[in-house]
Amino acid sequence: MSGVLGRIRSGLFKRGTGILLGQTALVYLFLYIPIVVLVTLSFNDSRYAIVWQGFTTEWYAALLSGETVARVDPNAAWAALSNSVEIAAASVIISTVFGTMLAFALDRYEFPGKRLFTGVVFMPIIIPSIVMGISLLLFFNIVGMQLSIRTAVIGHVAFGISFVAVVVAARLQNFDRTLEEAAMDLGANELETFRYVTLPVIKPGVLAGALLAFAMSFDDYVVTFFIIGQENTLPIYFFGMVRQGISPGVNVIAALIVVSTMVLVGIAQWFQGPTW
């Protein structure tokens, strides 16, 4: 009995590579089939968006010419997109500068309460976004700040700093500090050393951190929903559309979002090597 089992087992392991390759392929299918189906259905010639009726680009044409398709108004989507870009750009600039400085402080200096402080830096990444969003809402209410795009930027910076700091700190760990000492010995001051020695070395880390902060901001629905007031961002607009059900218009918007972000990120990864 055990002999038979043993033979089956060793047979399995002998074909192990093949089995693992097959399993890997299945996971890739799992990850990509929904996206492929989504993009395909955006070309579906049917008002009822789910059953395939034939190929058409009429939804794209209609939306791009500014026509409303099944409640999806392209002008509202554009406005939401421009808000999203504005918020993401502003919060990325602030959180990249602050987060990089923070990573430096955590890498270079010992100070009392450092462990606790590091814990606080990780918290915005860890706590549920719903808690972060609602607590910011309560706070803005209490201090009497009008909810707007500005409050959304404030909230996004609060988690962006943490993402940037974690990514940059990882890079700094491998940084050879004798390079800085050499620059200082040759007469550079702190700022010059940073500008001409440190920054060029850690630049990939800073860029990766900024990219991550941008994606997190651009993609965020939950935190933004609570702290932006009456304004829309693309995720908030999209969520509202999805709530009303599947429709050709939503399919087109979704396909455009997913294809454009994946192409952009794919290009970034191509130049940077795998980054996460």
Binding site: Y28, L31, Y32, I33, P34, I35, V37, L38, L41, A49, I50, V51, W52, A215, D219, Y221, P235, F238, F239, V242, I246, V250, N251, A254, I257, V258, T261, M262, V265, G266, Q269, W270, P274, T275, W276
Partner: peptide, 28 residues
């Protein structure tokens, strides 16, 4: 590895919507 990373960067809500397209009645 990049193929694993890509979906993670692609929009969260859009991917949830894609799942919705697959699980609804009469879907592929």
């Amino acid at each position: 590895v990049v193929l694993v990373i890509l979906p993670f960067w692609a929009s969260f809500l859009v991917r949830i919507y894609a799942i919705q397209l697959l699980l609804s009645a009469n879907s592929v």
